[in-house]
Amino acid sequence: MAVLDIRDLSVSYATPRGALKALRDVTMKVPEGKITGIVGESGCGKSTLISAIIRLMAPNAKVGSGEVRFKGEDLLSRSEAEMRALRGTEISMVFQDPMQTHNPVLTVGRQMIDIQYRDKLSKADKRKRATEMLALVGIPDPQARLNQYPFEFSGGMRQRIAIAMALMAKPSLLIADEPTTALDATLEVQIIKRLRELQDEIGCSILFISHHLGVIAELCDEVVVMYAGEVVESGTVRDVFHNPAHPYTRALLECDPGHIKVRTRNLPTIPGNIPDLVSLPTGCIFADRCDVRYDACGARPVMATASSGHQAACHLIAEKEPA
């Protein structure tokens, strides 16, 4: 079963130019106990998607339609109090910029104890648990470091702390929004490895957002490729990376000649620009940059099955689809 099951989710932002349709009919799943990656260029709606999942959206954001089913229940119809009860217990988050993640004037220990406010434990026990978590993510001398302030830690250390905090409550779902993008490559590898081990240990599901193909290939079981607010391809990492079905995914992998082995820091750039999300083109969203577009592409393609568990939103796939 899927822990998270998103169906036809559309989100738009009110802007002076009109509604910016950041997400359109996004459908995807995060299977239980697996790591699912979302990959896509900057601005394709990855952060919007996760802010809609935990319902911490920008004030000008509006959910147009769709469902976000978590363990079978639609989060979009929950009350704010019910959502808050879920945050940090069932679903927890790691954000992109570790330098911004913690309150600068409170000790790390205080912040780690504060987030356990729901537990009826003594303060000493909460402290003990925080110490254990820090040790688990590889912070040396955790006992003493609890008394330190965020600015006394490096970026890599702070991201480890963020992961420790997110995993402390043993959530069912961990969402990480480009957690290693701000770090250098060596740290990135270390943190990814640790995350993988911890996921094994705790058994949670992870939704991991990145625009780094190598990281997705290394860490994830499943991958969802997003383009300009739509899901264009999804499937297992093996299927999608070795047998890409959508021309966009193919372009990405072709631009990255060593394929996923080479650790390109950023998503390779392919020629052309993302369409304007305020006034969207009709038809396929990728048509402008697609080198194999044809007459059918004037109509918007729907998700079609390339092989079992592997889908792409492209007319070429729909044509080949086994009837």
């Binding site: 988050m93 993640t101 309150n103 004037v105 504060d114 987030i115 406010y117």
Partner: peptide
């Protein structure tokens, strides 16, 4: 960002306002 973190951990809004935001 750290206020968003506090919210993402479900801290009560009162605590976020007075304990975390006002403190800064």
């Amino acid at each position: 960002g750290h206020i968003r973190t506090a919210r993402a951990f479900g801290l009560p809004e009162r605590q976020i306002t007075y304990g975390y935001a006002l403190r800064l």
